[in-house]
C-alpha cells in the first residue's frame, strides 16, 4: 500500500525508542498502524492496551506523548521529521497516601 513513495521522501520519527518511516502527511496513529504498532498506550486503572479507535479525535484513546508533551491525540497530529513519540502509561497520582 505504501510502496510507491521513494525512501528519500519518507519522514522519519521515533516511537518507543525505535525509528519509524512513514509517508509525508500521515498522522502519527496511521504511521504507527502502517508498521503494525497498534498499542499506543496502556490505561491507568487496568493497564489495558488502547489504540486507534475513532480516527477523528472524539474518543481520546490514541493518546501518546509527543516531544515531551503528554496526551496528544495521535490520529490528529501529522508526523514531523525527528518527532519523538512515546506510548503513555499510567498518569495518575499515587492512591492512599496522597501525592508523592
Amino acid at each position: 500500500m505504501s510502496t510507491t513513495t521513494p525512501r528519500s521522501e519518507m519522514v522519519q520519527f521515533e516511537f518507543d525508542g525505535q525509528q519509524v518511516l512513514c509517508r509525508p502527511g500521515q498522522s502519527v496513529a496511521a504511521a504507527l498502524w502502517a508498521v503494525r504498532e497498534t498499542v499506543l498506550r496502556t490505561t491507568a486503572e487496568h493497564q489495558a492496551p488502547r489504540g486507534y479507535f475513532c480516527g477523528m479525535g472524539v474518543c481520546f484513546d490514541c493518546l501518546v506523548t509527543i516531544d515531551g508533551r503528554p496526551n496528544c491525540q495521535a490520529c490528529l497530529v501529522p508526523v514531523a521529521p525527528g518527532m519523538v513519540v512515546t506510548p503513555q502509561g499510567a498518569a495518575r497520582a499515587e492512591s492512599g497516601g496522597g501525592v508523592s
Binding site: 491507568a44 503528554p70 496526551n71 498518569a91 495518575r92 497520582a93 499515587e94 496522597g98 501525592v99
Partner: peptide, 8 residues
C-alpha cells in the same frame, strides 16, 4: 488533564 504526581 490527568498528570503524573507533581503537587503534594
Amino acid at each position: 488533564e490527568a498528570l503524573p504526581p507533581i503537587l503534594s
